[in-house]
Nucleic acid binder design. Structure first.
Lengths: 206, 206
DNA sequence: ATTATCTATAGATCTATAGATAATGC
DNA sequence: ATTATCTATAGATCTATAGATAATGC
């Protein structure tokens, strides 16, 4: 077969593996699942990925996270000066990507993958926080923020969006995810309390 | 052996199984994992759970969710009239429980468990939303809320808290989870934007 | 000749069952 | 006699490898 199609086929293999691993995790995706999705015998995967399952998982998830880092940076830099638009773009970007369950990565997938698994987790947190911390820093420089722990804010926002992303459609019957994203933006930016009573509410209930 | 210790031993078995399943999921926990944690041979589990792995998973997770429902209802009803205290109690309750990853439940664990697996998911969403929707409804009746999609608010809050709960301690070096919970309450109730600019910000950027 | 795919198989692990052995209660 | 635990084993599935077969490019 032609050498110039090999790369294409391998890319397709990585795409399928990434989609499945990202959605269902390392343990519940078998090499047979990946191969049959591609219409291949599972033994044929080793032609493209001699390193085996763990190597394949690490390669596609590292690729996934790097793409997230780039995609989120692009989302926030396309609309500098408008935090809500930046966060909306980030949310839409995350929706366009296969679901990434950081809790599962940290507590199940990355276990047993040694140092490289731990490095994957660090990269995951960095990819999500770095671009948003940049955006929050700029908004704060404009005097717009009252909440100044940017890392916690970043993780909270991504967690909310991915949580929404993970909900199967049957549980969101009367509403699109795009509409739900706007609600998340409202909560994250403005809170659920009445604006006029916020200052008092904070003092009263802390 | 005495019949009166049988129940105790079985309870201990369910506790261990729940802890492991809840943290790492159905696929990456083996019966051997559960048995060795208990100091038992894995074949001995069938004495207490003749139904096998899937039955054990469903039993302990149904029990887990029912306990959550009761625990969260207790959290919100202990401080009626003070939403922040209600949500703080809910967050502390969730921290006291084994991590529950709804995304993994929906996209990996519950697959292949048939109707009972799907029912488990419905129960999961109900357990988390019902008590909080009640609390939000009361706060709204007091005129305190600006955000009125209570179900979305409930899922968003639980997702944020469990997302924080899932972060391994090495990623939260200089801060306790209790402190981080207060920050989440700030974000969720007040938003990250400056209070005085919120009304304008909403109009400007929507 | 090189590349891609499949067949066959090894070895490990997992769930599950049957039945032996040990420990306790009557 | 009942209950709890273990041994032994079956059967399924999974990862991985070796080597045969088929398809393409030169």
């Amino acid at each position: 077969m032609p050498p110039r199609t090999q790369g294409i086929k391998r890319e397709k293999l990585l795409d399928v593996a990434e989609e499945l691993f990202s959605l269902r995790g390392h343990a519940s995706v078998t090499l047979r699942d990946i191969a049959t999705t591609l219409g291949l015998h599972h033994a044929s995967l080793y032609h493209y990925v001699p390193g085996g399952k763990d190597e394949l998982y690490l390669e596609v998830m590292e690729r996934n996270l790097e793409r997230h880092r780039i995609g989120i940076f692009a989302s926030v830099r396309a609309s500098e000066g408008d935090l809500r638009t930046q966060l909306r773009a980030t949310g839409l970007w995350l929706f366009s990507q296969p679901l990434l369950d950081m809790a599962r990565m940290a507590n199940a997938d990355a276990r047993g993958l040694g140092k490289r698994g731990e490095a994957l987790l660090w990269k995951a947190y960095a990819c999500f926080t770095q671009p948003l911390v940049e955006a929050f820093g700029q908004a704060n420089a404009r005097g717009q923020l009252s909440f100044i722990d940017f890392a916690t804010a970043a993780i909270s926002f991504v967690t909310m969006v991915e949580g929404l992303h993970s909900v199967p459609m049957q549980f969101f019957v009367n509403e699109s995810k795009t509409e739900a994203l706007e609600k998340i933006l409202d909560i994250f930016l403005l809170g659920i309390l009445q604006g006029r009573t916020q200052a008092e509410a904070k003092k009263e209930t802390i």
